[in-house]
Nucleic acid binder design. Sequence first.
RNA 1: GGGCCCGUAGCUCAGUUGGUCAGAGCACCCGGCUCAUACCCGGAGGGUCGUAGGUUCGAGUCCUACCGGGCCUACCA
Length: 680
Amino acid sequence: MSPESTFYVTTPIYYVNGRPHIGHAYTTIAADMAARWHRLKGDNVFFLTGTDEHGQKVLEKAVERGMSPQEHVDDMVQHWKASFGKLEIQYDRFMRTTDADHIANVTSVLTHLHEKGLFYKAEYTGWYHVGDEIFVTEKDIEEGKYDRSELSEISESNWWFKMSAYQQQLLDKINSEPDFIQPEGRRNEVLGFLNTKTLTDLCISRPKSRMSWGIELPFDDEFVTYVWFDALLNYLTGTGYTADGTGTPPSGFDSWTDLWPANFQIIGKDILTTHAIYWMTMLMALEVPLPKTLFAHGWWVSSDGQKMGKRHGNTIDIDLLVQEFGVDAVRYFFLREIRFGNDGAFSYDGFMARYNADLANDLGNLAHRAISMTTNWLGGVVPEYEAAVANEDELKVLATQVVKTYNESIDAMRFDTALEALWELVKAGNKYIDTSEPWKLNREGDLAKLRTAKRVVLEICYLAATLLMPVIPNKSRELLTNLGRNEFAAKDYLKLLVSGAPVGLDALPAGIPLTYGDPLFPRHKELPQAIQKLFEAPKVEEKAAEPEPEVKLSKRQRKEAERAERKAKELAYQQPIDVDHFKHVQLRAGIILSAEAHPNADKLLVVQVDIGEDEPRQIVAGIATKFSPDEVVGKKVVVVSNLQPANLRGVESQGMILAAGATDVVDLVSVDAEPGEVVR
RNA sequence: GGGCCCGUAGCUCAGUUGGUCAGAGCACCCGGCUCAUACCCGGAGGGUCGUAGGUUCGAGUCCUACCGGGCCUACCA
């Protein structure tokens, strides 16, 4: 196979510990749609998805369950495979990071990069949570996941990847290729990051003494590979890539270079940075081409039309939707409702409305009435084209146009546009029935015209069923069967369609028998009981749920809480406080003994302040924009001495120096007093 | 604190580089048809395109400020 006709698409590999939810389903359905479409077109497709199975949390969970980590992930992975099965995901490889070939390939990459001198060993100092055995970031603390009081600052050696070396190269790449990161908003986000931040190096190891569940570093057996580094490499190891060139490509491909660079790497926008920065610099270090497109899609959020219930928060119960509406409807909805890449508002009512309008009323009913009339009046076989009845030629032009738009839109991941275009034809089919008035032709016994009238509509159904194979695979097959066709025939038809030839609406062989089956998509007059229950249940459970501490706030809820807190604080700031409040703040006079620039920040100074204690206090102060280190040495200052210590860009700060200036520093607050004197 | 994005009919969303761009679908109302899943077809109503300025012969479409929502990111100690 020549590389031109291959199509390689990936989803992230999902963290095996969790359960599949709408976010995973959405990504994977979209990738599956693209993969199926290209398979049908005859491309040599490779669709890679899977699970990420190493790391701290997996190990913890395994211990909790009294299992080995491998037993645990072997068990958990079943949920994922089952879920993808229910969603009709036709992947070519389900990558597990515990797969032997992945481990071997990652190992080869690590060896290679180490030999190239792109790794180095260095100390890392950070906040560590002993109970959870993990390093906690400042962000985690800000988000309230951890309280500083339960953390200790520790140092440990680790291996680092020289990611910082690739900043300019990556910037150039993104600047020169507008379609590299899509949609544009995400591209801007990455550019903004790269333009304003200095890339740091990436820690790629964990000491086994602390965390052993991972791929051992081939050059230092005291460490395992950090999960992200391991996981990201799956996209490449899945192609059979190894650094030494001895890997085995998937069957049907001669070499990993047949597949790589991937055509599309689809991710959710939450892991944009990891992919756009970490992954791309890793590839640059390997001197491997970057994927053609990294596509970050948006989220589904609940719309306000419906209360989704406290218990169900903003979740969309995809299993329930599949159960009540069928997997085809679910796939159709998520691909059709919004532009892939944007956020969208979800409601069950909206889902049902879309289902009824597009699938039941428009498409399902079109097929049903067409086959019904043909069965009742024309013996239930595909009729010949005979006398012209209405605007058959216009329909052919429209169909040709629709096929073109459909094809082009899918290539650009604009599934909504593709389906919208196809529905123009479906609607035109319904209109054509009205215009051709077959019931009248039947009454008048004008069989020549009646045959044409029916043939045209059956052809539209055939065209729709064919184009919809990657979207609604089951219903599409059912419709094809009812039309006396199978998927092989449809696949040939599809190839003909996308070749760009004018659509003649004459693809069905005359005389083949039709099947008048049940409606494809039964109409729902109201939301299924099982879904309605979602909205009733909370009332009963609300009370019981209340005392439950807010263990698992969604990210969104957390943000809202933060915002509320900030507002409250702002308000509080304007309110008078009583004197006891103020007394909580311990202020001491001090004198700056020495000062130096912060090693990794240009607005900060690191100063040593004598406040009358045995040891001087080290304080990181944001005053470098106004003062040089030399200027502040010897200055008398006022220090907040009972402030929680904080780590600012890697340097501990044990207090705060009072300064004047709301935004920019104007001057330091100074008192003429001995160091240690209380300021009140 | 810095940056990015969004705010268009009751609802969900389209609106390329400024010039029939004020749209589609759903919902609602009126009319038609009867093959069909109370469906389909036709038609009407409905928006000063978040607010206020500005650039332009002309702006949802560009600029500025503000309000509201989302996201990313911080060198506040």
